[in-house]
Design a protein around this nucleic acid. Sequence first.
DNA 1: CCGGTTACTGTAATCGGTTACAGAGATTGT
DNA 2: ACAATCTCTGTAACCGATTACAGTAACCGG
Lengths: 342, 342
Amino acid sequence: MTRKSSSVTIRDVASQANVSVATVSRYINQTAPVSEDVAERIQAVMNSLRYTPHVAARNLATNRANAIGLMVSFNMYGDFFGPMLNGIESVVGEDGLSLLISSNNLALRGGQRGVPLGPNNTDGLIVYADSLDEQEVRHLYELQFPMVMVYRTPPEGLKIPCVNIENKAASFKIVEHLIKVHNRRRIIFLRGPEGQQDSYWRELGYLKALEENGIACDPLLILPGEFERHIAAMTITDAILNGLEFDAVFAGDDDAAVGVLGALRDAGKRVPQDVSVVGFDDQRTSSYLTPALTTVRAPTLEVGRVAAQQLINLLRNGQADCETLLPTEIVIRESCGCNASR
Amino acid sequence: MTRKSSSVTIRDVASQANVSVATVSRYINQTAPVSEDVAERIQAVMNSLRYTPHVAARNLATNRANAIGLMVSFNMYGDFFGPMLNGIESVVGEDGLSLLISSNNLALRGGQRGVPLGPNNTDGLIVYADSLDEQEVRHLYELQFPMVMVYRTPPEGLKIPCVNIENKAASFKIVEHLIKVHNRRRIIFLRGPEGQQDSYWRELGYLKALEENGIACDPLLILPGEFERHIAAMTITDAILNGLEFDAVFAGDDDAAVGVLGALRDAGKRVPQDVSVVGFDDQRTSSYLTPALTTVRAPTLEVGRVAAQQLINLLRNGQADCETLLPTEIVIRESCGCNASR
DNA sequence: CCGGTTACTGTAATCGGTTACAGAGATTGT
DNA sequence: ACAATCTCTGTAACCGATTACAGTAACCGG
């Protein structure tokens, strides 16, 4: 197979530099002082031999993988994923660690046993939303395996740091905007996937906005959107066919909002004149839609950065913030009815 | 630090099952026959001990990392990246390999020497576009390190498998569509980043379409777009201010097309009545833009799948297709001037 | 009954690093 | 001048797997 052609080992370096392997190791890892001339000799030999340490050997000896894992849902598309990964990768790379990434599709890892990322692979894990089921999380937790969760709070009783975004307050604000500024009363809310926590909090914000403004909640207006554009589109199309009356849609997220916009256009409804539409996330293209989408800006890249940072803290110092909640802000564009100028 | 709490080794399994470590290893890896009752005993012990092999030890012994690397440009956002990663991850995971991912931002890996992904890390590399400069590629090539490139052809003289998409033919077709169907004559082409290969071929298709239809190429119409929406937008805005006459824009990619659409709208030009706009990629949101974007569908996820497949073939059999060119097809929507109905 | 496979198992070397332990000079304090 | 300390270095055990080599027992054909 692929024989590693000319494997230069630490012993080669040591002998050519006339020192012991221990000294070379110490020089490389800066783990003990080394006299200046020796250091120079070692460095020179390393350069001329193009020596790079064998990570597997190092990992075996130190019992650390020097890598962290990112566990994601089995399909990751959308504007959402890129920025988060970007954030994670930047701080992980900065720290000299490797980043392993894997989805947890049961169908795929048919042959394998257990989770594809774990203690034997990585030093810690970033768990995205429901990429790992509760049982798997609990198991890793019992092993005292360092984890931080993003877009999810840990299961009951487990103290796992998590980083989330402010869902409820922003949802409240944006729905209240629809009510107070645009005088909307019958506002549809499109739920995300069953059990999705962001969706749960957004719904709470929605309900609170209704309540505080004296609008009775009509359960018929809470419908499935799944954070997916085509499902959201279907839901809205059905709603119109069934004669459901509504004057606004809080789409759950921007992806669903895109579907809603399409469905309304197909049905001949004007946005925002007939129906206001708002989303959540402020994905890259949202400002380029017609009409430009009013939504909530979520600091997705920042979530990635913070999560990685927390995990690294956990690894190094054994400490991390139990929960960090990143701020969100509503961004008013056109789809709610504002800035009709353009 | 993080002491691996209860590290169960192969020796524990062996002794509890009353066999030698060699036998256990052979059972695990199916590398030699093992009698049935022994197999059962081993399996039972493994289950009760929750044994999982230590990958670093295995990697050291076999001198393989059981992982492949994906090297990406230092910033990866956009609809583009998700699907590709999705494709790669699916086949890599299916094969029981791990996926390491890293960007090659010089600024970041200031401390480190060399490329963050390489022979000591991984068994092979997928190199995305210009994430690695030519010198680095040559170095890895000299080490006979397995690589495949995506969205890029290897440097002169190096036989590295690559997977690309059909750029020229589709560009030709879509530009010809503008000419023949919509009678456009002054068509702007927005280049991608300097040296970007996809951009190069798309330009060739553009030029060929002009030539075959008897239109002289006006160099003033070839402008920078960088495959970035805000740069594309600026370029178009400037062009309009400078009084450049044009009746169509081939934006280089969909991202740039989004910028073009915005710039034209801001300038009061109607699309497609005044100016036709077409893109390349068919990103997820492109069909939801107003007007819906006429573009070229690129099988991004498939690129990922094929690349991973090729790399795995290279690892297993030492063989891979020198170049695979994935087909693209033009998809006619509204921004060119067709289907004006909606 | 005997040489040659076949099926299975065990011992111990090996992969390439890290690091506990020991020790040699040089420096310092009294 | 002597002990204590500090700086630097080397030897060898160890991390947890794989696998070459050796060996035993059963089986098979003639």
